[in-house]
Amino acid sequence: MSSNPDFSDFFYAAPDGLRLHARVYGEANSAHWPVVCLPGLTRNARDFHELALHLSTRSALARKVVAFDYRGRGQSAYDPDVSHYNVGIEAGDVLAGLAALGIEQAAFIGTSRGGLIIHVLGAMQPAALKAIVLNDIGPVIEPAGLAHIQSYLERAPKPKTLAEAMAAQRSVHGQDFPALTEGDWTRMVGALYRETDQGLLPDFDPALIDTLAGVDVTKPLPDLWSQFDALVTVPLLAIRGGNSKLLSDATLEEMKKRHPGMEAITADGQGHAPFLETGILPEEIASFLDRAENGH
């Protein structure tokens, strides 16, 4: 495990032997539930850096935080078999990482695909889930939202500099995220891209885009209501971007009906998916985790 002033890099083997990576913040914090952060489809552990610092060093109950890079993202190895880029295998990878770290139970924060993985973890190893934060994801994915992601990834700009990258991201996503500051966009670009000998590149396996090619977004997508219903005893906070195209108000209301204890927050001025380090979200997430651990 290599170290950084803010976190440690942890490398481990997936069940099939692929070399995978996670960041560990607040490694010495053991008095309270650890937190596991799971990013979106093409994103990586860097998305959670500021939130992880808040939860591990600034909140009332300092926690260990583990942020994962799925296979094919960030510092994890790319998989030569594209079919392995699926939520079932990625859930198994997360469990392997937790076992390697000696973590049996934790609170889980999942953005987009990360929230889908949490649904699968609830079926695979329900005892591991002490509390859940779902960031702009639920049991129903709106086809229009997935179509938007498909379209963007297929036509993603190829900037040469970080300044060009930030301009490109604001051009595509700015209308859905009027609440973001210059610093927010800078952090987004820093998390999404990496600088290489070939220039600036998105920090994920390009083959990931192929996994969306066969999805028919003109038809309703399979839902996860049965998996969601199995989470009814787990404290749950759902965060929805006010401008989200992926998680609808109707789905959020149905989630509240099925999980009466669920808390919900709308991140105004943000789309899919809200930046969890912005505004009141870090404090709200920390407070929710504290209440859940204290049985409130």
Score class of each variant (00 low, 15 high):
residue 258 R to H: 06
residue 243 N to R: 08
residue 281 L to W: 12
residue 256 K to W: 09
residue 243 N to I: 01
residue 259 H to L: 13
residue 256 K to A: 15
residue 247 L to E: 04
residue 281 L to R: 14
residue 286 A to Q: 11
residue 259 H to K: 10
residue 285 I to E: 05
residue 290 D to L: 08
residue 288 F to E: 08
residue 261 G to H: 11
residue 258 R to L: 03
residue 238 A to Y: 01
residue 273 A to D: 03
residue 269 G to V: 09
residue 277 E to W: 15
residue 253 E to T: 06
residue 260 P to F: 04
residue 246 L to K: 05
residue 243 N to L: 01
residue 242 G to H: 09
residue 288 F to H: 11
residue 248 S to M: 09
residue 269 G to D: 03
residue 280 I to F: 12
residue 244 S to T: 04
residue 258 R to V: 02
residue 285 I to M: 06
residue 243 N to F: 02
residue 267 A to T: 09
residue 286 A to M: 10
residue 244 S to Q: 01
residue 245 K to W: 08
residue 249 D to R: 05
residue 252 L to G: 10
residue 259 H to I: 10
residue 275 F to A: 15
residue 247 L to D: 07
residue 238 A to G: 00
residue 275 F to V: 15
residue 286 A to T: 12
residue 239 I to F: 09
residue 288 F to V: 10
residue 250 A to F: 07
residue 282 P to W: 11
residue 256 K to F: 06
residue 255 M to T: 06
residue 263 E to N: 13
residue 273 A to Y: 00
residue 280 I to G: 09
residue 266 T to N: 03
residue 266 T to L: 05
residue 279 G to Q: 11
residue 236 L to K: 03
residue 280 I to A: 15
residue 255 M to D: 00
residue 281 L to H: 12
residue 255 M to Q: 12
residue 264 A to R: 14
residue 269 G to M: 02
residue 255 M to Y: 08
residue 289 L to A: 03
residue 265 I to E: 03
residue 292 A to Y: 11
residue 236 L to C: 11
residue 238 A to T: 02
residue 246 L to P: 10
residue 254 E to F: 12
residue 254 E to H: 13
residue 269 G to F: 00
residue 258 R to E: 04
residue 261 G to P: 07
residue 252 L to N: 09
residue 273 A to K: 00
residue 254 E to N: 12
residue 264 A to L: 04
residue 268 D to A: 15
residue 256 K to R: 15
residue 285 I to K: 03
residue 272 H to D: 13
residue 278 T to Y: 06
